[in-house]
């Protein structure tokens, strides 16, 4: 059993509870124990970095200091934006301008994106031999979004224009992974609340292109991407005048399905675009 620090972020206690449940389930199967950071706080998200640059470092920075105090050497983060803000705080608190902030951080915590953590080569090997239901019938486009990769100076991502770790994961699980040019294009993120018109345009581009590539689902690693592609799909379909019906899965849900977790399909039923027809047609509904 491997133990690792875990920073869930606010959405995973709310609208992304499906993501949270699938992460717990998958980590259990992979013998990874997630130790939740005690008394963590919100990273400040887009609101903080839009209105107050110090708040945008000190809010996520408090979590780094907490992790250090609690002796966590690794902190796994499922939300792309939280990951980005924690990495931003890390660079700011350890950089030449650190005197601008009121926090003392030594830098002993390694902040990791959940997908990066779960797709290490040894884990992919393990999954190849332990998958019980290959994802045959799934034709996926991998949608990585913005914040896990950009800017690479902050994220330390090795391949920011064309990330491939989700592609490798889904291929290992037996899905057919389709190439497409919008892997890291923006979904509109927090504009979903205040300017939904912008999100409808951006997700409309993504959804149309995914369909044109022949995908029968989109796979994501960020709950904001999931929410925008899933919740806005009905509206986008109405505006485009075509049916879309593209389920939007978290990569952890598909891992759980392929590895045979008994609750896997029930998590995905919490999405707004019903995934059951596709799962049934692919022999994956349980």
């Amino acid at each position: 059993m491997e133990t690792v620090g875990y920073y869930p972020g606010c959405s995973l206690e709310g609208t992304a509870r499906d993501y949270a449940a699938s992460i717990r389930g998958v980590c259990q199967m992979l013998h990874v124990e997630l130790r939740e950071l005690d008394d963590w706080n919100c990273c400040g998200a887009t609101a903080a970095h839009s209105l107050n640059r110090r708040l945008a470092v000190e809010l996520p920075g408090r979590n780094l200091v907490l992790a250090e105090t609690q002796g966590l050497s690794e902190l796994v983060v499922p939300c792309a934006l939280c990951f980005n803000r924690l990495k931003t705080a890390e660079k700011a608190l350890l950089g030449p301008e650190s005197h601008r902030y009121s926090l003392q951080y030594e830098g002993s915590v390694r902040v990791m994106d959940l997908m990066d953590f779960l797709t290490r080569p040894e884990r992919l090997q393990w999954m190849e031999t332990h998958r019980v239901r290959p994802l045959e019938g799934i034709r996926a486009v991998c949608y990585y979004g913005c914040m896990v990769n950009r800017p690479p100076k902050i994220t330390d991502a090795p391949s920011w224009e064309n990330p491939t770790n989700m592609d490798a994961l889904l291929s290992t699980l037996g899905a057919r992974v389709l190439d497409w040019p919008f892997k890291t294009d923006c979904c509109g993120a927090s504009h979903s609340v205040s300017r939904p018109d912008l999100v409808t345009t951006l997700t409309g581009r993504l959804l149309s292109r995914a369909l044109a590539q022949g995908a029968n689902c989109i796979v994501v690693s960020c709950q904001m991407c999931q929410a925008n592609l899933d919740m806005f799909q009905e509206r986008v379909a109405r505006e485009l005048g075509t049916a879309l019906d593209l389920p939007v899965f978290y990569f952890t849900e598909l891992m759980a399905l392929a590895l045979g977790h008994p609750d896997a399909a029930s998590w995905a039923r919490r999405h707004l675009v019903d995934p059951v027809p596709l799962l049934e047609a692919s022999g994956l509904a349980v």
């Binding site: 606010c10 959405s11 206690e13 709310g14 609208t15 963590w40 706080n41 919100c42 400040g44 998200a45 887009t46 609101a47 903080a48 839009s50 209105l51 107050n52 708040l55 809010l59 927090s190 609340v193 205040s194």
Partner: peptide, 19 residues
């Protein structure tokens, strides 16, 4: 306005309560 409401929520509880 959304950014302001968001930060007020964080200031209140330290975490955001989406609903």
């Amino acid at each position: 306005a959304f950014h302001e409401a968001f930060l007020e929520d964080v200031a209140r509880r330290g975490r955001v309560f989406e609903a």
